[in-house]
C-alpha cells in the first residue's frame, strides 16, 4: 500500500491540478521509490481508460420528449413575441422590409422575395446563437434550421446601420442596412434566409461592416446534416 500522501499527489497529477511544489515533491518520490513509479503507471493507465470510455449520442426521442413536455408557459411564446419584442418586430418589419438589400458577392443568394418577415415559423429550431458583446455592434445573432434550410436571425443595435457579410463554404452573402440606434426599446430584429447554405457542421462567419470598415465578427456553426 502506497503512502496516502503520495497517492494523493499522483491523483492530483492525473487531474492536472499539481502546483510547482507538489510536482517537485512527487518527482523526488518517484525517483526514490520504484513502487511509487509502478503505482503511478497504473493510476495513469486507469485514468486513460476512464477518459477513453466513448460517449454515445442520446436517443432522438429524448429531445422530442422534453420539448413536448415543456411547461405551457413555453408553448408558443418566443422572445420575439414578448411585449418589448412585439413593438420592435412591428417597427423592424416596416423599416427592414424597405431597407434591406441583398447583394450576392460570390455564389447564389436568395431572391429578394425570399426575405422573410421578422417572425420565424414554429417549425424552426435554433441551432446556434452568439452574443455580439457591447462593441460598435451589440445584440445577438442566432442560426435557425427549418427542415433543410438555414436562417439567420439578427437582433442588432449599432449607432448606424451596418452591413453584414455572411460567409460559409463557397457561399458569401452581403446584407445591407441592419441594426441602427435603439429607438424602440429593443434591438431591431430581422431574418435572413440562407437557402443555398449547406449543413455539414461548417462555420458560418459574419463580418459586420460600418462606414466601409469592419467593426465586428462572429461565427456560428451550422448543424451537421439536415
Amino acid at each position: 500500500m502506497a503512502d496516502p500522501h503520495y497517492m494523493g499527489l499522483i491523483n492530483v497529477e492525473i487531474d492536472g491540478e499539481l502546483d510547482a511544489s507538489q510536482r517537485a515533491e512527487l518527482a523526488r518520490c518517484l525517483l526514490a521509490d520504484p513502487q511509487a513509479q509502478a503505482l503511478r503507471g497504473q493510476m495513469r493507465r486507469l485514468a486513460q481508460l476512464l477518459d477513453g470510455m466513448g460517449e454515445v449520442e442520446p436517443p432522438e426521442t429524448l429531445r422530442d420528449a422534453v420539448l413536448a413536455a415543456l411547461p405551457q408557459s413555453y408553448a408558443k411564446r418566443t422572445g420575439l413575441l414578448s411585449p418589448a419584442w412585439r413593438v420592435a418586430a412591428v417597427l423592424a418589419g416596416v423599416v427592414v422590409a424597405g431597407a434591406l438589400l441583398f447583394e450576392t458577392v460570390k455564389g447564389p443568394g436568395p431572391a429578394s422575395g425570399a426575405l422573410s418577415g421578422t417572425i420565424l415559423a414554429q417549425t424552426t429550431t435554433m441551432v446556434d446563437s452568439v452574443s455580439l458583446g457591447e462593441g460598435a455592434v451589440s445584440g445577438r445573432v442566432s442560426l435557425y434550421r427549418d427542415r433543410a434550410q438555414l436562417t439567420l436571425r439578427f437582433e442588432v443595435l449599432s449607432r448606424a446601420p451596418v452591413d453584414v457579410v455572411i460567409a460559409s463554404g463557397a457561399h458569401t452573402l452581403r446584407v445591407k442596412g441592419l441594426g441602427g440606434p435603439d429607438k424602440s426599446g429593443g434591438a431591431a430584429g430581422s431574418t435572413v434566409p440562407l437557402p443555398d447554405f449547406e449543413m455539414h457542421g461548417q462555420p458560418v462567419d459574419l463580418t459586420f461592416v460600418m462606414d466601409g470598415r469592419p467593426v465586428g465578427k462572429a461565427t456560428l456553426r451550422a448543424p451537421a446534416g439536415p
Partner: peptide, 28 residues
Amino acid sequence: RILVRRCRQGERAACELLLGRYQKPVFN
C-alpha cells in the same frame, strides 16, 4: 446565462438551445 435569461422570459428557442448543448453530457 443569456440563454437562461431568455428561457426564463418564456422563449422556447432558448430552452431548445440549452437542451441541445447539454442533452449529450447529461445523458452520458
